[in-house]
Amino acid sequence: MSNPNLRQFILDYVDRHYNTAPEYLWKRDPNYAVLRHQDNRKWYAIIMDIPRSSLGLQGEGRIDAINLKCPTEMVDDFLQQKGFLPAYHMNKANWITVLLDGSVDQETLLFLINSSFDITATRQTKQALQIDTQTEWIVPANPKYYDVEKELRENGIILWKQSNNVAVDDIVYIYVTAPTAAIRYQCLVLEANIPHRSKHKDLRVDRVMRIQCLKEFSPTQLSRDLLRQFGITAVRGPRRMPKALSDEIASWK
Rank of each mutant, 00 (worst) to 15 (best):
Asp12Phe: 03
Asn94Glu: 12
Asp202Gly: 07
Asn91Val: 10
Pro219Met: 04
Ala33Phe: 03
Trp160Asp: 05
Asn114Ser: 12
Phe230Pro: 03
Leu11Tyr: 04
Arg240Lys: 13
Leu203Lys: 14
Lys161Asp: 12
Cys187Pro: 09
Asp132Phe: 07
Asn91Ser: 13
Gln212Ser: 07
Ile232Lys: 00
Tyr175Gly: 01
Ala33Gly: 02
Tyr145Lys: 13
Asp15Gly: 05
Ala182Pro: 00
Phe9Asn: 07
Gly59Trp: 10
Gln212Glu: 11
Gly61Trp: 14
Pro51Glu: 05
Leu245Thr: 02
Ile47Asn: 00
Met90Trp: 10
Arg236Tyr: 11
Asp12Met: 04
Arg210Tyr: 05
Ile10Ser: 08
Thr97Lys: 13
Tyr88Gln: 07
Arg62Ala: 05
His89Phe: 06
Lys27Phe: 07
Ile131Thr: 02
Gly231Tyr: 10
Leu99Asp: 00
Gln58His: 12
Thr108Trp: 01
Glu216Phe: 02
Pro30Lys: 14
Arg123Leu: 11
Val34His: 09
His89Trp: 06
Asp132Ile: 08
Glu60Cys: 08
Phe117His: 15
Asp206Tyr: 13
Met48Val: 09
Ala250Gly: 02
Leu55Trp: 03
Lys215Cys: 06
Val98Thr: 10
Lys144Val: 10
Leu68Pro: 01
Cys187Arg: 00
Gln106Glu: 15
Ser223Gly: 06
Lys201Ile: 14
His17Ser: 04
Ser163Lys: 11
Pro30Trp: 12
Ala182Ile: 00
Ala65Gly: 13
Phe78Leu: 15
Arg207Ile: 06
Arg204Lys: 14
Asp118Phe: 14
Ala45Arg: 01
Ile46Val: 15
Met90Asn: 09
Arg184Ala: 01
Asp105Val: 03
Arg204Val: 15
Met241Cys: 13
Gln221Lys: 08
Arg123Ile: 08
Tyr146Pro: 08
Thr125Asp: 14
Asn142Ala: 11
Thr20Pro: 06
Leu190Pro: 07
Pro140Val: 03
Gln221Glu: 10
Pro4Arg: 05
Gln38Asp: 14
Leu100Glu: 01
Ile138Tyr: 00
Gly231Ser: 11
Gln221Tyr: 06
Trp160Gln: 08
Lys69His: 12
Glu191Ile: 05
Gly56Arg: 09
Leu159Glu: 15
Tyr185Cys: 01
Gly237Met: 10
Ala33Arg: 00
Gln221Met: 09
Gln38Tyr: 09
Asn40His: 12
Ile96Val: 12
Arg236Thr: 14
Tyr185Pro: 07
Leu25Ala: 15
Arg62His: 08
Ser54Trp: 05
Val168Arg: 15
Arg207Cys: 14
Ile63Glu: 06
Glu216Val: 03
Cys213Tyr: 00
Asn193Cys: 03
Ile138Ala: 04
Gln81Pro: 02
Val208Cys: 08
Arg224Tyr: 06
Asn114His: 12
Val139His: 03
Asp76Trp: 09
Thr122Ser: 15
Pro143Ile: 01
Met209Cys: 13
Gln221Thr: 09
Val14Gly: 00
Trp95Thr: 00
Ile46Lys: 00
Ile46Leu: 12
Arg207Trp: 06
Gly102Lys: 10
Gln212Met: 04
Ala87Cys: 14
Leu159Arg: 12
Ala21Leu: 15
Tyr13Thr: 04
Ile113Leu: 15
Gln130Phe: 07
Asp101Met: 04
Thr125Gly: 09
Asp12Trp: 06
Pro51Arg: 02
Leu110Gly: 02
Val205His: 05
Gln38Ala: 13
Asn155Arg: 10
Tyr175Asn: 09
Pro219His: 01
His89Asn: 11
Arg239Leu: 15
Ser54Leu: 06
